[in-house]
Amino acid sequence: MFDKSQLMRGTLEGCILKVIFSEVTYGYEIMEKLKSFGFSDISEGTIYPLLVRLEKKALISSEFRPSPLGPNRKYYFITGDGEDMLHLFEEYWSSLSQTVNRILNLGEN
């Protein structure tokens, strides 16, 4: 059976960086945004370990801020290294997706 998780992991990291690049945000909101773009299977539990990983690699940083719902939320910001990584991801993804699409279209024309 096709294992989606391996393909998702690396792709999600790039997408999370893009979401955080577009605005300072927190875990639940990142998940909602990713869902709205079509990542329907993900939960906070999927992205939280990735946020921990991105923070460990200093690609994002964070701070706790009060939330209107009660408990403090951890808000994430992208760092300079994170922006560099995002640009690399965008370039690589563009080239990779074109390549994969060409291969998948083999025999269809």
Partner: peptide, 12 residues
């Protein structure tokens, strides 16, 4: 701290 926050928001 983060997991408690997630759980509390989930409860809400």
């Amino acid at each position: 701290k983060e997991l408690i926050g997630m759980a509390l928001e989930a409860q809400l």
